[in-house]
């Protein structure tokens, strides 16, 4: 079946199997490999992307369910000149990632946390990230990164909207 959506600011239309998961669509059809798959049970959040402004687990969404939606993946966060999104910058500065596998989903979920609550406490960040598992960092520096991003201003809780984000 035909699905159409905007991925990182770029309009696409593809013929896919109805059962194709959004995560596989992004990875294998669009070719955006940052979105990772870490489980089968909507548990780990590695596949988190932003769909119409809200974080979702792309392993539990059919590509067909994103019909007409605006999808942002990790690849769509940095500016056209390579300028890092405030959340990307904070993860880097606070050493909020190690092996990097949870990172794309974690960064997008973290943006979602700030979209919901621009100044979260330690506990609120942890609760906001309850759907994203990380085995490396013990979450300590992730929490610091999210709080550091929050301090940098409201852009940390927003995803780029325009086609200039296309990469």
């Amino acid at each position: 079946m035909q699905v159409s959506m905007t991925v990182n600011g770029r309009q696409r239309s593809d013929d896919v199997e109805p059962r194709l998961l959004l995560a596989h669509y992004l990875r294998d059809v669009v070719g955006l490999k940052a979105t990772n798959i870490g489980c089968d049970t909507t548990s780990c959040g590695a596949c988190t992307v932003i769909v119409d402004g809200l974080s979702v687990k792309s392993c539990t969404l059919l590509a067909a369910q994103a019909e007409g939606a605006r999808v942002t993946t990790l690849e769509g966060l940095a500016g056209p000149d390579g300028e890092l999104h405030p959340m990307q910058r904070a993860f880097r500065e606070e050493h909020g990632l190690q092996c990097g596998f949870c990172t794309p989903g974690m960064v997008l979920a973290a943006i979602g946390v700030l979209a919901d609550n621009p100044d979260p406490s330690d506990r609120e960040v942890r609760e906001g990230l309850e759907g994203n598992l990380c085995r490396c960092t013990g979450y300590h520096n992730i929490v610091r990164a999210v709080q550091s991003a929050a301090r940098s201003g409201p852009a940390a809780g927003q995803v780029p909207q325009g086609p200039e984000a296309a990469r």
């Binding site: 909507t42 959040g45 979702v56 539990t60 906001g128 759907g131």
Partner: peptide
Amino acid sequence: VGDPQVRHR
């Protein structure tokens, strides 16, 4: 319910 991503859907 679940986590934020689950609640979003």
